[in-house]
Design a protein around this nucleic acid. Structure first.
Length: 502
RNA sequence: GCGAGUUUAGCUCAGUCGGUAGAGCAAUCCCCUUUUAAGGGAUGGGUCCAGAGUUCGAGUCUCUGAACUCGCACCA
């Protein structure tokens, strides 16, 4: 839609192409008649726009200073044939006031040549207009980069969501909210990292290209290494590699901010590549991970937003620790009246699940049914932060059996706004048990569950050398950013979300 | 993958019953030197998402396809 068409043989130029050609033709004018290049190399900038606005916030209306500054940015509005230009940089706006009596004569012809979208640099003195607009009284102005293509309309801006995603640079130029969200994302990631490093966690990197996808239940993307003539997959989780590092004693506390790839559906809450943060802490269990989760979220919200009471849609999410901790079975019992802990065989579980109107597959055992009932009957009601604990063994092949009930594991998922935002366990470190769990996964795969885990022999070998008791936690960073930026679509928190080609 | 919706100028959007394609902003030219969605005047700009069909005639009706949006399914 916004692709620039070729010019040859087109008698009827589109508006876009006409404008582009006019501006290309104009480039030689800049060099011939104005004597400047439209794409110079450097500009010495003394202030960002926010620095000027802050430094001169007390300057009274109508006051002229003698203070010389040099500013630069994109022209977003032109009034009175260039006498007034709004110059935007990432920090904000400053008005350039180029009066013919104070502008260098050599610069005067430039005013008629500037277009909306051009990047300009200006030198002049700071003043505030009688109507209160902080401005630079321009003495010299120069073109720093010529914009050949017209910007979207100034008042309504760019609202077409498809163009906003496909041409994010245009979205960023036109929509301050987009910039705010992505800047907040960066600050959130930084504060996650700062929080963990301050607690002596070591940041590490593990393979994205793997031979076998492990650490989660998901379909991977497949790729191929040419020189080795070897099929590979992109990771669906870094979990098994991070625990190998704990086995090796690289550190008792490790974390990775990791991009994962899952070959599944796209939705407002799912992007095929997404960012997670996983941490592992030796000698800790899942209760320690609950506390860590609460402290992490509270720290991030406080750092980025200045509060742990976060407005999201029509509600306020309260991240102030501590958060409720409830078992999955008791939440299901409260919602449905069915006590799954009293159900002792798979067939009865399937019968009860079906009776509740829940989708049940033939190979689903007690644990799968309990989880399914939870997801269909309970999950969407959990708005405020809550830890759902004690997941069934059969759906938690990497989590340690619960110390007080062999059907359950020491695992929790944190729910906020109905979404899973964290998943954590007391990590299974018994290699004999781990082998049996993998074998149960293989049986599930044979029974038709194509997202069951594979057996990873080297991972079991690592466990056989001894993994200390360890707590592990994964946090969905994209969803965390959504919650803290009041975003309803994951694409709004990812600069370049996955799209089909046009 | 399924269902519903959207797609018209660079952008934001109108387009009635099937009868010559519209506005604002942006662009070009002119006027205007204290504006801030600057203002006034004039001008240019269209593969109506693509393809097929019905019709004397299709932006409009039918079918097929595409991209996007929302929902469902899928989703440790």
């Amino acid at each position: 839609m916004t692709t620039v068409p070729h010019t040859e043989n087109s008698e009827h130029h589109s508006t876009l192409e006409t404008i582009r050609q006019q501006r290309i033709d104009q480039l030689s004018h800049w060099e011939r008649e104005v004597g400047v290049t439209p794409y110079p190399y450097r500009f010495e900038k003394t202030h960002s726009n926010i620095e000027l606005q802050t430094q001169f916030c007390d300057l009274a209306d109508g006051v002229e200073t003698e203070i010389v500054v040099r500013v630069a940015g994109r022209v977003m509005a032109i009034r009175n044939t260039g006498m007034f230009m709004d110059c935007h940089d990432p920090s904000g706006k400053i008005q350039l006031f180029s009066h013919k009596e104070s502008l260098d004569e050599a610069c005067l012809p430039l005013l008629k040549l500037f277009d909306l979208g051009d990047i300009v640099g200006a030198e002049g003195t700071v003043r505030r207009t009688p109507r209160g607009e902080l401005s630079v009284r321009v003495k010299k102005v120069e073109l720093l980069s010529k914009s050949l293509l017209p910007l979207p309309e100034k008042y309504h801006g760019l609202t077409d969501v498809e163009i906003r995603y496909r041409q994010r640079y245009l979205d960023l130029i036109m929509n301050p909210d987009t910039r705010d969200t992505l800047v907040k994302r960066s600050k959130i990631v930084s504060s996650v990292r700062d929080f963990l490093i301050a607690r002596d966690f070591l940041e590490v990197e593990t393979p994205i290209l793997q031979h076998q996808a492990g650490g989660a239940s998901a379909k991977p993307f497949h790729t191929h290494h040419n020189a080795l003539d070897m099929d590979m997959v992109l990771r669906i989780a870094p979990e098994l590699y991070l625990k190998r590092l704990v086995v090796g004693g690289l550190s008792e506390k490790v974390f990775e901010l990791n991009r994962n790839f899952r070959n599944e559906g796209i939705s407002p809450r799912h992007n095929p590549e997404f960012t997670m943060m996983e941490v592992y802490q030796a000698y800790a269990d899942y209760t320690d991970m609950m506390t860590l989760t609460e402290e992490l979220f509270a720290h991030v919200a406080q750092t980025v937003l200045g509060t742990t009471q976060v407005a999201y849609g029509d509600t306020v999410l309260d991240f102030t620790p501590p958060w409720p901790r409830r078992t999955m079975a008791e939440m299901v019992f409260e919602a449905t009246g069915v006590d799954f802990m009293a159900i002792t065989n798979d067939e009865e579980a399937r019968t009860q699940g079906a009776a509740l109107g829940v989708h049940v597959r033939d190979f689903d055992g007690w644990g799968h049914v309990l989880e399914q009932v939870f997801e269909e009957k309970v999950e969407q009601t959990l708005i405020q932060p809550i830890h759902i604990t004690d997941y069934p063994v059969e759906i938690s092949p990497l989590a340690k059996v619960h110390r007080s009930n062999p059907r359950l594991t020491e695992r929790f998922e944190t729910r906020v706004n109905g979404w899973e935002v964290a998943n954590a366990f007391s990590e299974l470190n018994n290699p004999l048990d781990q082998r049996q769990r993998f074998e149960a996964q293989i049986a599930e795969r044979d029974a038709g569950n194509d997202e069951a885990h594979h057996l990873d022999e080297d991972y079991i070998t690592a466990l056989e050398y001894g993994l200390p008791p360890t707590g592990g936690l994964g946090v969905g960073i994209d969803r965390l950013v959504m919650l803290l930026t009041n975003s309803t679509n994951i694409r709004d928190v990812i600069a370049f979300p996955t799209l089909k080609p046009r």
